[in-house]
Amino acid sequence: MSKVILVFGQVRNSEPTRPTLECLSLAAGLGGDVHCILLGTGAKAAAAAAGHQGASQVWANEDASFDKWDLAAVANTVDAAVKSTGAALVLVPATTHGKELAGKLAARHSAALASEVIGVSADGDGFKAVRPVYSGKVRATVKLSGSPVFATVRPNVLDVAAADSSKTATVNDLAAGQGDSRIQLVSVETKGDTGAVDLSEARVVVAGGRGLKGPENFHLIDGLATAFNGAVGASRMVVDAGWKEHRYQVGQTGKVVTPELYVAVGISGAIQHLVGMQNSGCIVAINNNPEAPIFKVADYGVVADLFEFVPKLAEELKA
């Protein structure tokens, strides 16, 4: 298949972002002719990496005005490329910006749009996509008819193929499209550290148990939580002993949490604790007793002395 697959790439620090690389890998795997759009400062510098990832053509515009999001201008710019390349499939990272771009263009083309896909496959003349629905409880395979078709690709799900530095892309200039004066970006603030993450809403929870031996060692958990950018939790033993307040307690008589990642350190895994965390996305257990029941629910178990292992893990995360 030599259809054009157009990837809308995003650039940060003169590199394609990770979701962009994921889109490129997906496109290359489909066997089409992969084109990539890169806009804003560093776009041309990022083109090399896009080439290594399988793009044959890069459509770039280095105008710094693209560094500040202007949906209309980006949409008009990308639209011109969609038309000029005759793209059959347009892949866009499912980021805040990507999703609004894809929706806008799909409406403009009266085209099929599959959102937040986790896979795309060629299907005769067209494409099929797989996307999680019902809050991830179900996966749908959808058939996209017409041409072009659009898909936004859920970040951090697909693999990025190894870069092949022998492959390069031709870099073409892409004219900037018209913006919309009705909408003005007033400011972009980079938020500082928002401080402690709330336990019930955290993406990552690092919880400590009696294996820590005493409150003076709980800083190991705090440090690990910071390294994961997560929140701190505790078993009831820790709370009863007064090392941590009750609001940190995870379990039947504490909080029920479902983070994407739960790290249990020095926690044995009593049922009363498990009830509070067993629906987490991924569970890591760190315990020096290989028979500890926590390992039964763990996706990854580490048999180690926590006093030795936790500092190493924190170091490794920062690396």
């Binding site: 996966r139 390992f295 990854y300």
Partner: peptide, 18 residues
Amino acid sequence: KVQVEKLEYPPARPPGRM
């Protein structure tokens, strides 16, 4: 233009390992 062909449950979590 987006037709659902089939729905399925996501694959079960692989067994844990050390």
